[in-house]
Design a protein around this nucleic acid. Sequence first.
RNA 1: CGGGGUGUAGCGCAGUCCGGUAGCGCGCGUCGUUCGGGACGACGAGGUCGUGGGUUCAAAUCCCGCCACCCCGACCA
Length: 491
Amino acid sequence: MAKVLTCRKEDYAQWYNDLVIKADMAENSVVRGCMIIKPYGYAIWEKIQSELDKMFKATGHSNAYFPLFIPKSFFSKEANHVEGFAKECAVVTHYRLKNDPEGKGVIVDPEAKLEEELIIRPTSETIIWNTYKNWIQSYRDLPILINQWANVVRWEMRPRLFLRTTEFLWQEGHTAHATREEAVDETLKMVDLYARFAEEFMAMPVIKGTKTEFERFAGAIDTYAIEALMQDGKALQSGTSHFLGQNFARAFDVKFLDKTGKLDLVWATSWGVSTRLMGALIMAHSDDNGLILPPRLAPIQVVIVPIYKGSGQLKDIGNTARKIRKDLEYRNISVKYDDRDIYKPGWKFAEYELKGVPVRIAIGPRDIENLTVEVARRDTLEKVTIPQDKITDHIQNLLTEIQENIYNRALNFREKNTHYINDYEEFKDLMEKNGGFVLAHWDGTSETELKIKDETKATIRCIPLDSPEEEGKCIYSGKPSKKRVLFAKAY
RNA sequence: CGGGGUGUAGCGCAGUCCGGUAGCGCGCGUCGUUCGGGACGACGAGGUCGUGGGUUCAAAUCCCGCCACCCCGACCA
């Protein structure tokens, strides 16, 4: 088969780039760092959105929409928050263009300067808390459980398709609560929800944990995250949920009267996942032939390819194909029958493998004669011949099996690449060679964390929630430690 | 911002050293033969050579300036 992708072994980053483009998911735009999400890529994002949205609603959240522009002054209200985002904000200073008097196209009209600059949201805490101030007076107004689907802009130094783009799509939940406990519960509930989504829909095992002070969200008391291991041994932070304490309520003066008539600041959380999940999905499962999509997120779950000579054969095959499609669609399986005459079967096989379609059915004259079809699965590339009257059940079971198989494969990979390390030399050696997850003891100081980062490029991805209490010594400083933390090189 | 590289047809590139008709592969269009793992033939369309200046009879090619993009680092969902 003709190679369209760079091999993973040869150059993992190049393989990723090739795949995103060749599978027709996205391309770079004329604006540096901003991508064009193409229909096939967007269809996957829509599946992600749709499933998450159902989960948010099932946990009591509603969608709303807040503005793209945020007054500059809002960013000075929460000190840590501005420090975290100031370096990467796009700023709107003018609101009008005019023809260049010297005839060189258009220029920014200097007379149309804004009194106060507007910041294109890098995240919406500030404008949302400024709004919540007007919505909240009493404990009866709480909780507020809102999510928004939006685009945000962060002026990153080095963009990569899906993984780190200047503009990206995401959802951001922003909730307001009467008590600390309730807000903490919400934070945990949402990180659990993300983990469940990653594992059940993306077939991607994740580790839940809290971030260290150094890695924490700007303005948060606690940041919880899900971390996944990619095939090149690097970690990808795939979702975060922040307990914001009363920081934003304090910054925007959002108070409420409790049942006893006492005035108190409101407790906050925020949580989000972004189009970065697309990158995670690609890197968690795919191979040198292309994308491998989990059936639960694949826009096309089954493709039917006819193999024929002449229009007579195509007609018989078409009738069989359409009947199979109808039976599968009846069970809510999405099916594409590709009878385009401009491409040969071999071309189509390669194309749908590149695009990660979980199951392919091929029907040729041989099958018409024998009342069979050929079924190929994308995850293992295995092909079997199945009687036509068994096909619907077979496909339905196969989709479930593929979903489980790619999850287990990713889980096995992670287990093989998760190491318990007690020796710093061993740690350095591992980070240099294979990467992967390392569980090691840490003395809890940012100083040690930073030194390890400088020396090995590995960072503390999280302090895993399920990490057991255990007496140990910090891998770097030798000071006592009670818990292992998760180290990895990260995206 | 530091280091490296690249701008030539939709895409990938050669041509630049040594100035002289702008080329190759893929893709695209028409027609025909094909079709169980990326088919083949014939004909055809398509380029301000990133940009501004300079040298020259003549510039993709030499000289000077500018711009853009990519890769490696610091930043990051």
